[in-house]
Amino acid sequence: MNTILSDQSLIYLQIAQMLEDGILHGDWAEGAQVPSTNELARTLRINPATAAKGINQLVDDGILYKRRGIGMFVAEGAAARICAKRRAAFYDQFVRPLAAEARSLDLTREETEALLAKAFTEKKEG
């Protein structure tokens, strides 16, 4: 297995997630071309069909669009759409586990919120 992908979830989902991360972080601006199926397959040593599946999922979600004969491009408003989707999942994916872990460590709600606030300032400084 290579260093970027893991065994923990399906590879095409990881591809989709990786591209989404890149778009969110501004690696690929709206209208920019993303790596082709073959580039992804070669770099990550995966079957091109799997890479295509990941990319196609993003096409279905309206995040990427295809320009015939040229390649795949980031759609208008893609970052916003990813942002909205991830916000919807944020509570279940991050907040609930955070609260559960805090409870098992006997951290109070106030203490946890203080830590959160601290993390936010650090992030701003960083």
Binding site: M1, D7, I11, R45, N47, T50
Partner: peptide, 9 residues
């Protein structure tokens, strides 16, 4: 099978 999942369609 280590690399298999990524290679086999």
């Amino acid at each position: 099978l280590e690399e298999g999942a990524a290679i086999f369609e």
